[in-house]
Structure formats: C-alpha cells, structure tokens
C-alpha cells in the first residue's frame, strides 16, 4: 500500500512541476507563438498527469466503485484531444489576421 501511495505522490508532483513550468514559460517567452508552445504542451500534460495519479489512487483505495475511474479516464482522454485542437485554433486565427512571428534578434513583443 505504501508503494502505491508513493507512485501516486510521484505522479502528482510531476503534474504540478509541469504546470508550474508552463506558467513560467508564459512569462519568459518573447512572442505570442512561442508562448502558445509553452502553455499548450505543458499545461495539457500537467493536468493529464494529475488526473492519472488520482485514477490510480481511486483504483487502490475505493475499489468498489469502478464507474468513477472510467469517468475520470474519459476526462483525461478528452483533455488530450481537446487542448491541442484549441491551441491550434487560436494560432490559426492569429496567423490569418497577420501577426508576424518573432525571429532571433528582434526585440521583445
């Protein structure tokens, strides 16, 4: 039982670390397109890892209700499909209205 709790803590800490790194990238990067790189990838995986850890915890401790684990796994699948699509939609809208990407050597926008 202690091993499963350790693995769940590892997943939750990893998810927290990736979400934090995504927010730091949002502040540090110099252009809109690079900021979307940081948040669209790291935020998705951070939330996915947190929910994966909680699915494991539920399967071990509350193992009589199986439907809740199925519901949470459907939520994780939905996040992995929906967040990249929303990121792509924002990026396409910015590209079509003429926002120019940043090159090495320009100033910060």
């Amino acid at each position: 039982m202690v091993i499963i709790d350790g693995i769940v803590t590892l997943f939750l800490a990893g998810g927290l670390f990736f979400t934090f790194v995504g927010s730091i990238g949002l502040l540090r990067f110099p252009d809109f397109y690079t900021r979307l790189h940081a948040t669209g990838k790291c935020d998705t995986l951070g939330a996915g890892l947190i929910i994966l850890g909680l699915i494991l915890y539920h399967l071990v401790h509350y193992s009589e209700s199986f439907l809740v684990a199925a519901k949470l796994s459907f939520l994780m699948l939905f996040i992995f499909i929906a967040n990249p699509t929303a990121t792509h939609a924002i990026m396409k809208a910015a590209y079509q209205t003429g926002l120019v990407p940043w090159k090495l050597g320009d100033e910060r926008k």
Binding site: F29, K41, P101
Partner: peptide, 24 residues
C-alpha cells in the same frame, strides 16, 4: 513522445539563456 516533448520544453524554459530560434 508527449513526455519527451514536455521535458524538452521544460529544459528550454528553465535554461538561463533560453535557446529558441523559431521558424515556419
């Protein structure tokens, strides 16, 4: 590949010189 991608982005964000060079 998703896990590798995020480790790569984390490296680029936390590096003090931020090695990025975007292109289309």
């Amino acid at each position: 590949q998703i896990v590798l991608a995020n480790i790569d982005v984390a490296y680029r964000v936390l590096h003090p010189k931020m090695p990025i060079n975007p292109c289309v």
